[in-house]
Amino acid sequence: MAGEDSLIVVEDLIKAYQGRQELAIHGISLEVKEGECFGLLGPNGAGKTTLMGCLLGLLTPDGGTISIGGLDPNDFAVREIIGFLPERPLFESWMTAQEFLEYHHALSGLDRSKRKQDVENMLVRVDLDRDAWQRRTGKFSRGMLQRLGLAQALIGHPRVIFLDEPGSGMDPPGVALLREVLMELKRDGATIVLNSHHLDEMERICDRVAFIKQGQIRAIKSMSEESDYPHTLRVRFAERNDNGSINDLFEIVTRDTGADLLELDFRSARLAVTNSTMAALVIRKCIEQNIEVQSASPESTSLEHLFKETAGGLLRVSNEQNDLSDNHKEDNQT
C-alpha cells in the first residue's frame, strides 16, 4: 500500500524485451516521496535505464503499475510537471543552443512572452558560454551537450526530474555546477530520480538509493540511516623528527579508542574504526597526543561501502547458487 506522501509509486513492475530470455525488470516495487532525491544504483545492464524509461512512459511495462501523483506516467498532467535528461543527449544538430531551448519551451506549452528571458536564464544557470548560445548543437562537445540537456530538463521548473547520468562527460566545474543545481532543486522541493555511477555525487544528493541488479531491487538504503558504518580512517599529520615516538603515540591512540592500526608511515596512518563516533575519538586522541593532524577522512564513501556490501552479498549468493548447481550436476552424473 502506497504511503500518503508518496509521489511516485511502482508496484510489481515487469518488463521484458523481445529476444532476451531474462526479464529486464523483474517485479520492482518502490515509492519515492515528494521532495525526495531517489538514486538508482547498479551495474551496467541492471535495468536502471529500463526502469527510468517505464517511469517516463517511454516503455510500456509488461506487468505491474506505475503512478506519478496518482496518475499514469503518460498523463498530460504528469508530463507538464516532469523534466528529463537522457544519458546521451543528442539533439536537433541544426539548431543553436538558444533555438533548442526555445523549441522545448514551446513544446512545454509555457508562456511565449517569457520564452526569451526564460531560455537566457536557463543558459546562464547551466553556465554555458555565451559564445555558444548561437552555435549549432551539432558542434557541441559532450560536456556542453550535457549542460544544454540539463537546461532543457529544467525548463518550466519541473516538480519531478529524471536524470540519467547527468554528470557524464562533464568537466570538474560542470560536475560542481550540477551538484549545485541539484542541491538547489532539492531546496526548492523538487522530486529527483537520479541514475548515476558517481557514488560521491549520489551520496551528497540522494536521500535514498535503490541497488538494482538483474532487474530486481536488492536493497533500498536511506543515506541518513546508513551514515555510521565500519570504515577505514586515513589520518594525515605533520612529519615528526622523532620517528620512534610516533609509533608509541599511535599505540596509545589505538589502545584508548579500540581502533585497529592498519598502516603507519612518516606522515599518515590508516585505522579501522567501527563507526563515526570512534573515528571522532581517534582524531581527538591524536590531538591530545600532540600529533599535528592535517586532515582526517574516511577512505571510502558510505555508498561505496553499501555498494560493496550489497554487491558482495549478491556475489556470494550467486557463487553459492553456482556451487549448488555444480553439486546438483555432479549428483546427476553419479
Binding site: 517511454l58 508530463r79 513544446l107
Partner: peptide, 20 residues
Amino acid sequence: NTLALGGRTDYMPLIVTRPM
C-alpha cells in the same frame, strides 16, 4: 530522421515526454 528509429541518435524521448 525524427520519425524513424535511430537508436542512440534518436531524440524522440525528449519530444514524447513533453505535454503533447
